[in-house]
């Protein structure tokens, strides 16, 4: 199959278009998704192609349109709700955390809520404290939600398409800083229907000396760090892209750690009760004897993200911090 180089943004756009085309129950709703073509142009051209019934501009009212999506999903529509950023999902927290995932349990299985919440999540660039939340650790604590974080164009497309077809509420947490990055993706429908299953991590770089567990924005940083220590320290580092936070692919994670015996978690969220906290617990719980060194973590600092560029850089994860964590863990 002839792969194409397309951007993460185009990949998401293709996924939306293919799913809107495939199923008339699918609709896209959010702020400025239609006439303006999306704040980040993810929905470019979709209004023109599918019309205002399927691609719907909502007022600035996240709780309202997230809830409208949940209600519509209860009776069989397949809403895709765009948050302009997941930092804004916090004003819809009751809908995302209390309604979408609970309807199935509370109704004793009578109603499902097949809804997708998607949009950029996590640190971007100089947006200050309110627009930089990495919400995966908040939502991962809520039973009933599935959470995926694509780091490549191919994963962005395949995970989003799978999310639309899933009967559970799914959060597709995109990475704004990766929207313009390119990567190989299979040809579009009808030639190829790209679906990537949840709960499958991807070993994006094979190695033997140390495992970096990562996802989202820190995934490319981890590859960069692995290249640096390969060159400068002759270390052969394995990089595992989780892709799916919930469900988590524990098999792939444990197999990698059992092979390398050293772990750095590079994550875009904050340290306290972050994704790395859970990963660290799982590893020591299942394969305590396999570890040759304490697990290191690279995260955002536990502070509100400052605006000033230099300070922002200081509190966010960077390839340099990952390199330092690798060296520390390897005793260099």
């Amino acid at each position: 199959m002839q792969m194409r180089e397309i951007t993460y943004r185009q990949a998401l756009n293709e996924a939306l278009a293919e799913e809107l085309e495939r199923d008339e129950n699918v609709f896209l709703m959010g702020e400025e998704v239609a006439q303006y073509n999306g704040a980040y142009k993810i929905s470019q051209g979709l209004l023109e192609r599918f019309g205002p019934k399927r691609v719907i501009d909502a007022p600035i009212a996240e709780s309202g349109f997230a809830g409208i999506g949940c209600g519509a999903a209860m009776v069989g529509l397949r809403p895709i709700i765009e948050f302009m950023t997941f930092s804004f999902s916090l004003v819809a927290f009751d809908q995302v955390a209390n309604n979408a995932p609970n309807i199935l349990t509370m109704s004793g299985g009578q109603f499902r809520c097949p809804i997708v919440f998607r949009g950029p999540n996590g640190p971007a660039h100089q947006l200050g404290a309110t627009h930089m939340h990495a919400t995966e650790c908040l939502y991962a604590n809520i039973p009933g939600l599935k959470i995926v974080v694509p780091a490549t164009p191919r994963d962005a497309k395949g995970l989003l398409k799978s999310a639309v077809r899933d009967d559970n509420p799914v959060l597709v947490l995109e990475v704004e800083m990766l929207y313009a990055t390119k990567g190989p993706v299979e040809p579009p429908m009808p030639e190829h229907d790209l679906l990537i299953p949840f709960g499958k991590a991807s070993v994006v770089r094979e190695g033997t000396d140390l495992t970096i567990l990562t996802y989202g924005r820190t995934m490319p940083m981890s590859l960069q760090a692995a290249a640096t220590v390969a060159k400068e320290n002759n270390l052969n580092v394995e990089v595992v892209d989780l892709r799916s936070i919930k469900p988590l692919d524990l098999d792939t994670i444990l197999a990698s750690v059992a092979k390398t015996h050293r772990v750095v978690v590079a994550e875009q969220d904050r340290p306290v009760c972050g994704i790395g906290s859970e990963l660290t617990f799982q590893i020591q719980h299942h394969i305590f004897d396999e570890l040759d060194a304490p697990i290191a973590r690279v995260t955002m600092e536990d502070v509100a993200v400052p605006y000033a560029e230099k300070l922002e850089h200081a509190v966010l994860p960077t390839p340099e911090k990952i390199v330092a964590a690798i060296r520390r863990t390897c005793g260099i």
Binding site: S63, G64, G67, I68, G71, A72, A73, M74, V75, Q95
Partner: peptide, 8 residues
């Protein structure tokens, strides 16, 4: 909002 969603 769920009620509005059912009507939607």
């Amino acid at each position: 909002p769920l009620g509005a969603g059912l009507a939607f």
